[in-house]
């Protein structure tokens, strides 16, 4: 559990921005940076796991050797999985409709 609350003034912050506690990504959900997310067509997927291997954030969840889902807490929507999928069965879908996200 990090001591950071998100509303500290600089006098409260550790010198030089040192993060004093390990594991800060447990609550710092970087998936909030995303503007689009992958949707997998599991009917078409052959579970080659190329997406799993190439995901820079380890967000493709494999269960019993088979691709199961995407961890949207941390997926930043880079689209590498969709780009590299040999079956083209991963589609990037905007998190919000374009008009609303503008």
């Amino acid at each position: 559990m990090s001591t950071r609350r998100g509303d500290e003034g600089y006098r409260e912050l550790p010198i030089g921005g040192v993060v004093l506690d390990p594991g800060s990504t447990r609550h710092n959900l970087t998936g909030s940076w995303r503007s689009e997310h992958p949707v997998i067509d599991l009917e078409e997927c052959v579970h080659c796991l190329i997406c799993w291997e190439l995901c820079p954030d380890n967000c493709l969840v494999v269960v019993n050797g088979k691709l199961a889902s995407v961890d949207l807490d941390y997926c930043k929507g880079c689209g590498i999985c969709a780009m590299e999928c040999p079956r083209k069965c991963i589609e990037m879908v905007p998190d919000l409709p374009i008009e609303e996200s503008a």
């Binding site: 998100g6 912050l13 993060v19």
Partner: peptide, 14 residues
């Protein structure tokens, strides 16, 4: 501890 971490717009200014 983590040194030289990224600071978003929430901490950089401070």
């Amino acid at each position: 501890q983590t040194f030289g971490a990224w600071a978003h717009r929430d901490y950089y200014f401070e």
